[in-house]
Design a protein around this nucleic acid. Sequence first.
DNA 1: CCTTATACTTTGACTACTCAAACTATGCTA
DNA 2: TAGCATAGTTTGAGTAGTCAAAGTATAAGG
Lengths: 231, 231
Amino acid sequence: MASRTIENYLKQLWLQQQESRGKYVSMGKLAALVGVTAGTATTMVKAIADSGLAKYTPRAGVRLTRAGEQLALHVLRRHRLLELFLVEVLGIDWSDAHGEAEELEHVISETVLARMDLLLGHPSVDPHGDPIPSSAGKVEAPELCSLAELQTGSRTVIVRIMDQSSEFLRFAQTSGLVPKAAVIIEHNNPQAGAISARPNGQQPVILSMTAAAKFLVRPCAATGKRRGKRS
Amino acid sequence: MASRTIENYLKQLWLQQQESRGKYVSMGKLAALVGVTAGTATTMVKAIADSGLAKYTPRAGVRLTRAGEQLALHVLRRHRLLELFLVEVLGIDWSDAHGEAEELEHVISETVLARMDLLLGHPSVDPHGDPIPSSAGKVEAPELCSLAELQTGSRTVIVRIMDQSSEFLRFAQTSGLVPKAAVIIEHNNPQAGAISARPNGQQPVILSMTAAAKFLVRPCAATGKRRGKRS
DNA sequence: CCTTATACTTTGACTACTCAAACTATGCTA
DNA sequence: TAGCATAGTTTGAGTAGTCAAAGTATAAGG
């Protein structure tokens, strides 16, 4: 139906809307995410809006319609199932899986996807802990808090990693900070601006607050909790 | 390197050259194979020739250079490995695998392909018995004869099927005429223009000479042989 | 209130691919 | 050998996507 290009715009738009809690996405942001100039993004967004997949208000930004969201979620489903398949079945490094899936997500058929889904046992999350939308186009992401929000002495389990770049993922892997890993917060002094986290049976890892915020965990707190921080 | 479009032209060109024993391929033929008009094929072939992948002689036809052949063989390798992977690992129907692979062959990376190759145990043929080119770009297809050339009473084994259309493949499958199947020629009267072949433990199947010629077998003959017929 | 930096939009141009239709070469048939 | 059918080529035009550069709106500061 939609071209590869449009699928990409929709996917990035959806991802960005999640980030910004449904607010209109600016052209500059979208252009950067898709990897085109702002002028190109403006042109494409107008075309996308004309086909009813988004609402575009000049100079204010763009937001997906319900139809656009559905399409975006189907692309995202393909992407995340593919990532998991590449990692689980083919043994591709998880730091490479994202890039590979980026290409495949636009050409894989429903038939093949359904086979992968079956083979993987209808999984609910991809290798980074990101939820896989259902074939009906539904996602539910539980509210999680981040490593940065936990107090010294907390014990928790990493659920999701909010950075797909292969550099960050390689760092996370070598540090032992992967989904399902149990972690103890050894130090989190609010004044320090950095924390020390120790994955089960590994060396402690020092993380900036920015880096720590990329690791979402559950349960949120054991020794204590601090919530409501909008980082 | 080369675009999807060009990869397709090269692949069809290579396939057609095999068919016609290395002769120049006509524009009409190529256009039909790729699914474009003759004018489009002429334009593209000139561009392909300019980039050194083929030799083009106006009104005579086009032929791949060594470089073009190598590229074509890499595409073909991706295609055939994917077909096998889809059938063996994902359980896709072999009549659908061709079409699926047609899309995937242009986006799959070398890394992913190498993983599939490993998982499949470095296979030498795809589900139709077509040889899979090596990663170095070599193929060797043994000389085979067809079901149409065998005399009444011959026993043989199907090795390769020379028709990728899903209709024909479905027919072949339901008849039991699949690669590795043992077959007895029950009747082959040259005057009749049709043969009757019985796969091991199945009902006999009546085939026109055209249809029978699509099944390549080995050994070529048990009771007797008739060769050299160019059908 | 005017000025300016910034983000956004518009414009014109380019690449890759495609088609329809007009034109041309080739070779066969009479 | 003239005439024609056929296959191939050229031309003009269109779609999808892109960029660079010029133009425009907006909010923020003096």
